[in-house]
């Protein structure tokens, strides 16, 4: 799709988005990539760092209140990088906000998630939200891969409109091992540490 190629080309020129596989290798196994979140470029940068063959089966999770607002953003998110929309504000308690992600995983797609839930100004990730834990419990066979996006908090920090082109490396760490009966806070902190260790 031309829009995907355009997005990837722009991302390469702006921030490079060069992949470094430090603890894992590219694989067709179904995966959830989880990363630190500090700029709007993160989503496309991580996606662009994947080999083209994997990219087609990997869908970034994007906040519906940002990416599903307005025709242009919606078009870019859904056609450009095949996003799965998630509602960050869910007044309707009867529906599970994770349902779109669950559907995508059940279809066999891999996901890119930012478990902090929102962008932060600092280089290291803030505490993770619970969604990653619930997905991990529900899909015990999906590999959980920590990813650290370097420098992107400098490229386009929250509140800025124009990016500063700086080289960003995308570090893929070793698959997070599963520990039986691990508590939610322990799991989330362990997952966060896996991202921090790549920094």
């Amino acid at each position: 799709m031309w829009l995907s190629n355009l997005l990837i080309g722009l991302t390469r020129i702006l921030v490079g988005a060069f992949p470094r596989w430090v603890g894992s290798t590219p694989s067709h196994a179904q995966r959830i990539y989880f990363a630190n979140h500090s700029s709007h470029i993160d989503t496309v940068a991580l996606w662009a760092a994947l080999p083209p063959g994997l990219r087609a089966k990997t869908r970034p999770v994007a906040a519906a209140d940002y990416w599903n607002q307005g025709a242009i953003r919606r078009y870019v998110a859904s056609k450009g990088f095949n996003a799965v929309f998630i509602e960050r504000t869910h007044p309707d308690a009867s529906t599970d906000p994770l349902q779109p992600l669950i559907d995508a995983l059940e279809q066999g797609d891999s996901l890119i998630v930012f478990p902090e839930g929102t962008r932060h100004r600092q280089a290291l990730p803030a505490p993770f939200k619970a969604g990653l834990f619930h997905l991990a419990e529900r899909f015990p066979n999906v590999e959980l891969v920590p990813v650290y996006l370097e420098n992107l908090h400098r490229c386009m920090p929250k509140g800025t409109f124009f990016p500063v082109p700086l080289i960003c490396t995308v570090r893929f760490g070793p698959v997070l091992n599963r520990i039986a009966d691990e508590s939610k806070p322990a799991f989330l902190e362990r997952a966060r540490q896996a991202v921090v260790e790549l920094a």
């Binding site: 920090p157 800025t160 124009f162 500063v164 082109p165």
Partner: peptide, 12 residues
């Protein structure tokens, strides 16, 4: 972060 605007200006 306070250099952001100056840096954008340099590039663009």
């Amino acid at each position: 972060a306070s250099d952001h605007r100056a840096l954008s200006l340099a590039f663009f």
